[in-house]
Amino acid sequence: MFDWKWEFVWEILPRLVQATGNTLIAAGAGYGIALVLGLVLAIAQRTPYRLLTFVVRELVEFIRSTPLLLQIFFVFYVGPQFGLRLSPWMSGMIAIGLHYSCYLSEVYRGGLDSVPRGQWEAATALNMTVVQKYRRIIIPQAIVPAVPGFGNYLVGIFKDTPMLSVIGVAELIHTANAIGSEHYRFLEPYTLVGLIFLAISLPAAGMIKVFENFVRRRMGMK
């Protein structure tokens, strides 16, 4: 490839590796928030309280239908207007965690719905409380069919972290932008960032499959 400078690659690689670490931390933290909040949103939609169900359903729909980029700006800029100043990292994690919790709530819902009615009835026949039913019987079974969905959104959240660059989170794209404007060279940094994303998300798909089989075996299901 013409004009590709290997020495420049070696020069900037350490910074990009460090930024990769930040990207992974951002994805991991955002995913952690989404996992917890997503379960809450999913169970809230299964309660008998019509109003709660309706409000949560519409909220999920709203957040899923609007751009994450806009939500990141919203969280970052609107807080200070009301005297609440959040760091870029903090606002980024809130925005991305909230956004993906809506997707994950759908995965949870799909998993919960896939557990046959007979399982609920058998748990009732054993006189379990609602909490015991969810914790001991339903959620363990809901996880198996949900693993691919969880995996895909983990990769998804990782690929969406570049949007955090717009509020100054020093992840991969932010770092590549900085390198580009310092050296007036964009070929190597952007190409390397692309390759780093590929190098992480391609094996991830295979790992999700392996993990799914592992969970399935752990649960004694074929």
Partner: peptide
């Protein structure tokens, strides 16, 4: 396997 933002920058800048 890569981000839309990375693709956009690559197409526009590279």
């Amino acid at each position: 396997g890569t981000s839309l933002l990375v693709q956009l920058y690559w197409i526009f800048f590279v």
